[in-house]
Each structure stands twice: as C-alpha cells, then as structure tokens.
Design a protein around this nucleic acid. Structure first.
Length: 812
DNA sequence: GACCTGCTGCGGGATG
C-alpha cells in the first residue's frame, strides 16, 4: 500500500519525508497520535494519504458508491481550508478515489450546505464551531456513523483555548458513535507536546496505542537586530520604534517582498503611514493587514502578496498563520514579540520551504528591548518554546455543548456523562457539578428558574431536548467560544466596507473629523446604526484609531532568559551585538543606581514633583507585575494607610504615593513572603472586578447573554451590563455557581498566573534586596514612569484622604 | 530629554 504512495510522490518528483512515511505506517497500524511538523513541510499529506490508503485497503476491488463521511479535518482558520482541499483532492485523484472533498465553514453558501446534506461528502474540512453546528443537526448520528478519522490541524493553536475544548467534546461524542475512529493531530512544536497529545486523546486512551511523530526538519533562523547608531538618542521608553524607520527602508528596497510585523493594530497603521511618507514611491506596492480591516480588503492583500504584486505588507498577528506565502523573502519584527513561539512563527513566514533559511530583522522600540532580542536569540538556540496551557473545567463550554446536543434531537445523560468525564477538560468534574449543569440548562439554575427564557432544555422520558424552535435557532447562532467587543463598521458613503473600529473610538469623534484607517485618510460623514460612513479626505493630519485588544504578555520562558541576559551585560563583556549596543545604557544605570546581578533584586526610591515613587524590577511580564504590585501595596498599607497609583510594564512596576513610603521598615517585614499568598491576593487585588470582566465572556458562551442576530446592533454597553447583572445576581443568590467559580479560576490561572507569581516572589525572597535612591528617573524606571495606564490601590478611608488633601491644599 | 499602545480566531436552517 505504502509503495503506492511512494510511487505517487516519485511521479511528482517529490521525495516523501521520513516523518510522512512514519505517519503513514503508524496510521495504517491503528495508532492515534500527533504529527509535529512545521508548516510548509507537506504535513497535510502525512495524514490525508494514509486515510485514503486505508480506504483502498478495505475496498480493493471496487469503491462503494456512497461510503458516507469518512474523515473530518478540523482547521482553526477558515482561510486555510481551501489549500487543504486542493491537497486532499490531488491525493484522491492520484489514488483514483472518487471522493467528494468538501468545506463546511461559516462562509459556506446555503446552496453548498444543502448540497452537502443531500449528498454527504466523504472528506470534510471544517472549523470547531461548524463541527458543533453539525452536532446540532437532527439525526447527526447518521452523518457521523461511518467516520474513520478526525484530524485536528494546527492543534497547537487550539489546545490552549476554549476552541480546543470544543474539539475535545466533539471527539468524545465521536468515540462512542464510531468505535473504530482514529484521532490525529498536527502541531507545531510547543513546550508541552505530551500534554497536548493527552488533551487530544482524552483520559481514556491507551499509551501503547499513540504516537508522536516528529519531523526532523531543522529550521535555521537568522536574527538580525537593527541597532541604533548611537544609544544616546535612542528612547528609553515608548513602543513605536519609528525612530529606526530610516534603517528599515533600505531593507524594504533590497528585498523582493517583506512582511513587517507590529504588535498592535494602531502601530501597524502608524508604521504604514510613516513608511509611505518617507518613501512615496512605494505607494501601490505596500499594503496593510490586520484583524480590523475588512475581509475583502484582507483577501485582496493576501492574493496580491501571493502573486508577488506587493513589496511589503505591514501587519499584526493576522498574518502569523494563514495562506502560504511562498514569495515572502524577508520578515521584520517591530518591538518585542513577547514570546519565543510567536517570534519563530513569524520568522518562519520567510524561507517558507523545507530546508530554506528564515531571516528576521528585529527592530527594538526602546532600549531595554535590546535585551529581549538577545534573549530570543538564546531561546531559539536552545529551543525553549512556550507551553500552551489547556483549559480545564470550562463549564460555560460544557453547557453550550449540552444545549447543542439537545437541539439536535436530544441526549441521554447516562450516555453523555461518561463521555464528558473521559475528556481532559472535565476529567475532574464531580457528579454534583454535572447535576448543576443539567439543572442550569433545564431550569436556569436555582437563581434563574423564575424566567422561562433560561428553561432551554426539556426532559422527556429521560431525554434532554430543546423543543422551542426559537431557542434552537438562537442557540445555533451563538455556538462558539470567541466573544468579541461590539465593533462599528467603517464604510464608504457609496462604497464598500473598509473594516471596523471600536464603538468608543467613534463615540469620541465628531462628524467631519478626520482619522487614518486602513492606510487612508478618512472623514467621518455620519453614523448610522452599526456603521460609520466615511469619505476620503485630503487632510494629512488625523487621529489614528486604537483598539483595546488583548495584551501580549511576556512569556515566562522569555522573561527568565531576559534576566539571564541582563546579568550577562552586567557582568562585563557580552557577546551578542544587541547586548554590546546596550552597554552605554547599562553603564548609565549602574552610575545613577544599580544593575542587579542574578543574586540581587533592585528597588529604586525616587522623589519627584509627582510624589514618592518606588520601582521594582522582577522582569516577569506585566500581568504578574500587576499581581505583585497590589500585594506589595497591600502589605505596605499594613504599616500605614496609603493610596497608591500603580503602573507597570513587562520589566517592572511602580508604586506612586504622595506620602513618603517607609520602605526600609517594610523590607524588614517580609514584603515578598509567599505564606498566605492566596489569602493576601484575595485581600489586596480586586479579583472580584477581574472576575466580573471574565464573566462577561463566560456568560456569553454559556448562553446567558444573547449576542444578537447577525447585523443587528447590540451595544457592548448592553452586553456588559446584562452580564454584570447576572454576575451580581449570582454573587448574591448563588455564590456556588460553577460559572462564577470558573470566572475566578480563570483570573487566577490566566491573568494573575498564581504559580508564576508565587515563583517570582520566591525568587525575590532568595535574592539580596538592594534599595537605591537615585536623584532622577533611571533608564530602568523611566519607561514605567511614562506608562499611561495606571491603576489605583487605596487602603485609606475616604474621610482620611479628604482630610489629608485639604491639609495639603491649605499648606500650599 | 526621552511618552501617540495593546493580537488572533468563529458563527442558523427549515420552509415557502
């Protein structure tokens, strides 16, 4: 059988990689598993081919006319489906198998859906969401009963998200429906490969029945940092990096095509604009691509890139994955990518062929980012990649899934319960919790049982099902785990959509105002419902929109290496060019304060017009810093009542108060102790507010809050207030609600990262704490000083504060 | 003296 595949490869002038052959063998010998291969290595064939071979093996003489759905290929991104379809179709033709290879995603037409229903495809490429929609169809058991294989492509992308949980749940169902099912994943390298396998297989797999197949395709990555000529003019703070524009332009000219990655959408807008200003001759051959630019415009950019019509594209993570861009020659990363995997993924977009070298230019936006460059170099050298932490006990996804099954015609809890327990996500679920969920979907739970709206599922002779058609339709509409903010669509007055910007940004503008978006100068003409109508403007000055997206957190792998690199510079003669260039800055820091060695922890106390500042430098990423900052503020306020304003970046944090802070005294009392850590976190950090924010998504996923019909306007304020209302109601009447607990656990695990926070505190405890009193802001403290996002912590009674403020006023 | 901020991904279907 395998000879057949080998022969096909030979005919095409290809050589099968060893990992492909290993995957074919393993698959045909009834293994499940994970193929660890980089994109562009022909990974699709590693699993599509054995699926076809097995079919041939079982039907050697003649192919049955309608074998039914044989294989599902899950992709996290719709745009990848087409490419996969082409590859699989090609393999089908080669083996003379007359299969229908179909795509079923959100943008599959109604006609095509109907066609697939009449005439079941044998091979289906779909997304986790669309797969669940299939599970919501009547008689879905029939559709899946002949299923032989499920492939979870780009599994590393899904494993750390609730979309991964959706895959786990669907697989648990398939395992019962089709006992001979084979489950395979395809994944890029991540730090917790074994766990990723575990999540995919579920708790009931047999270890001698699974395989991890590694493609031994070494990817060589060359990192070239763009260094400022002199450190003197290079900013200590900031994030834009425009100062190095002059050095970026020649790279664009020299290379046939370049992708310029930025960390935020507004940064992409600004860079695009500035490049055009500096090099007007690039007009027409440079484009922009980010998540808020309309699909149509992005499609155009992708095609143009593919056809080599563009010289450069300024983009965000929106081009991390996606269609193969073979022609891309050069990659530029502006600003610290904050994670090793992300950086490698981006670097890998160039030299996108097996064996080809990837080349990436790193453009620092502020001095300390040069450390990050050197840390990245090291990380790649020793192959230190981040882990993707799988979600566990996501009861919102579970309740959505159960309603999905109830919509399809009903489920029997006796059958479904053990299936759920077999998943990695819900392995630890207790029977009580299971009953809570069942109760939640049938009555709305003890809190909401007065409202019919939440009695979604009815029980008829032990079968849980949805009979109300409206409920069923609303549910189908809200399947999925991605919750987004309300966006206002930007549209030409008489023309196409350009993209979307956030409600609050539009609200801050007046009719006639000009803003830059998608690389164009636009004038706001009117606002109608969910659309902002615009026309092109000749004005060169305008605001740049910003979006309040997620923040990239400095990964723990990278932060550890960052600390290492810092001590390397501190200790004398570093090798890396980045570290050498940063020496003047480090010397300055040493001169006015201190560069801590690995055994030391630096605290700077500075007095300015603004007040009394304390700066701490754990180098642990901003989220962990936020946690430590509140803890420290809380512990300081045990000595005396305080109000602090808190700021942080990825390297350190600041406590600012208008009172003198008795830091020496505080250091004597174990400021960084980890005993009672959990208790202190509760006491100091407003985990309640954080949970409330998390709960918004959870309420949506669990179906408490309806996001609205497509195209119909539901303001984000409305969404927020209704989820907030639920949050309060639960807190008051049902504090043991699993959804509430879930919100809290997500805060601890993903935001404050309790373990990482604890480790950081332990580390600091073992270091020698050195307190310095510099006259002025130092190279380390300056960037934090200018951070604009500040939080407040106060332990003062309001009346004390007012008293002190009035005293001050009187004095002044 | 230094400061323009925060990623990505998905998404009815039965009946006229």
């Amino acid at each position: 059988m395998i000879e057949k595949a080998q022969q096909w490869f030979r005919e095409k002038g290809w050589q099968p990689f060893p990992f492909q052959e290993e995957a074919w063998e393993s698959y045909l010998h009834d293994f499940h598993g994970l193929v660890n291969a980089p994109t562009g290595s022909g990974k699709t064939y590693s699993l599509a081919v054995p699926i076809l071979l097995e079919f041939l093996q079982n039907h050697p003489a003649h192919h049955p006319k309608k074998p039914g759905l044989q294989a599902i290929w899950i992709t996290p991104i719709r745009a990848l489906a087409r490419e996969i379809q082409i590859s699989v179709q090609r393999a089908c033709d080669a083996f003379d198998i007359n299969w229908q290879v179909a795509i079923r995603t959100g943008d599959t037409s109604t006609a095509e859906r109907a066609r697939q229903k009449r005439n079941t495809p044998e091979f289906l490429i779909t997304t986790p969401e669309s797969m669940h929609l299939l599970l919501a169809q009547k008689d879905y058991e029939n559709l899946f009963k002949n299923l032989k294989a499920v492939i979870a492509d780009e599994w590393h992308e899904l494993v750390g998200s609730k979309r991964g949980v959706q895959v786990e749940l669907a697989l648990s169902r398939f395992k019962t429906l089709c006992p001979k099912l084979k489950i395979w994943g395809i994944s890029a390298t991540i730090g917790n490969m074994d766990e990723a396998l575990n999540v995919l297989m579920g708790n009931d797999y047999k270890a001698d029945n699974v395989k991890v197949i590694k493609a031994d395709i070494e990817k060589e990555i060359e990192i070239i940092s763009i260094l400022p000529d002199t450190m003197e003019k290079f900013p200590w703070g900031g994030h834009l990096g425009i100062i190095l524009l002059e050095k970026v332009l020649p790279i664009l000219y020299e290379s046939k095509t370049t992708l310029i990655f930025t960390n935020t959408r507004s940064q992409a807008e600004i860079w695009y604009q500035r490049i055009l200003q500096a090099a007007p001759d690039l007009a027409g051959v440079i484009a922009m691509h980010h998540g808020s630019i309309s699909r149509e415009v992005r499609d155009w950019v992708e095609t143009a890139l593919h056809d080599e019509r563009l010289k450069a594209v300024v983009c965000t993570s929106s081009l991390d994955l996606g269609v193969d861009f073979r022609p891309v020659e050069t990659i530029i990363q502006i600003g610290g990518p904050k994670g090793v995997s992300r950086f490698m993924q981006r670097a890998g977009r160039s030299g996108h062929r097996p064996g080809a070298k990837s080349k990436i230019y790193f453009v620092p936006t502020q001095a300390l980012e040069l450390l990050e460059a050197s840390a990245l170099r090291k990380a790649i050298e020793v192959n230190e990649l981040e882990e993707r932490i799988p979600f566990i006990r996501s009861f919102d996804v579970l309740s959505q899934y159960l309603v999905t099954l109830a919509v399809s015609g009903g489920f029997d809890p006796k059958i479904i319960y053990p299936e759920i327990l077999s998943t990695f996500c819900y392995g630890s679920m207790s029977e009580d919790e299971w009953h809570w969920i069942l109760n939640f979907i049938t009555t709305g739970g003890s809190t909401l049982d007065a409202y019919d709206e939440f009695k979604k599922v009815e029980v008829e002779r032990g079968i849980f099902k949805v009979t109300n058609r409206r409920t069923a339709m609303r549910h189908r509409l809200s399947i999925g785990t991605i919750v987004s903010d309300t966006m206002i669509e930007v549209k030409y007055l008489h023309g196409p959509r350009i993209g979307s910007i956030e409600e609050w940004f539009i609200a801050s503008m007046n009719i006639g105002d000009v803003f830059w978006f998608a690389g164009r100068s636009l004038e706001l003409v009117s606002i109608r419902g969910m659309s902002a109508l615009v026309r092109r403007s000749k004005k060169k000055r305008g605001r740049f929109p910003s979006w309040q997206g997620g923040r990239l957190d400095l990964s723990s792998k990278l932060s550890a290496l960052l600390r290492l690199k810092l001590s390397e510079v501190a200790s004398g003669n570093p090798k890396d060019p980045e570290l050498q260039s940063i020496i003047p800055l480090i010397e300055k820091q040493q001169e006015v304060s201190l560069v801590p060695s690995e055994e030391e922890f630096l605290i700077e106390s500075i007095h300015t017009r603004e007040g009394h500042h304390l700066f701490f430098y754990p180098f642990e990423g901003r989220n962990v810093h936020e946690g430590i900052a509140y803890l420290v503020a809380h512990r300081l306020s045990q000595i005396q009542r305080f109000s602090f304003s808190i700021a942080m970046n990825d390297y350190g944090f600041e406590l600012l108060s208008d009172q003198e802070i008795p830091i020496e005294e505080a250091l004597g009392m174990d400021l960084f102790a980890t005993d009672d850590l959990f208790y202190d976190i509760q006491a100091s950090i407003n985990t309640n507010e954080m949970s409330r924010r998390r709960f918004r998504d959870i309420a949506s996923i669990a179906g408490l809050v309806f996001q609205g019909y497509p195209g119909k306007y539901v303001s984000s304020k409305h969404l927020q207030s209704s989820s907030s209302l639920f949050y309060d109601v639960y807190r008051e009447y049902e504090p043991n609600s699993l959804l509430l607990k879930e919100a809290f656990e997500e805060v601890m695990e993903f935001q404050l990262q309790e373990t990482r926070l604890r480790n950081a505190m332990d580390r600091i405890n073992n270091q020698k704490i050195i307190l310095k009193h510099p006259e002025n802001p130092t190279p380390f403290s300056f960037p934090i000083l200018v951070e604009r996002i500040r939080d407040r912590y106060t332990s003062e009674e309001l009346k004390d504060r007012i008293k002190r403020m009035t005293l001050k006023l009187q004095k002044g």
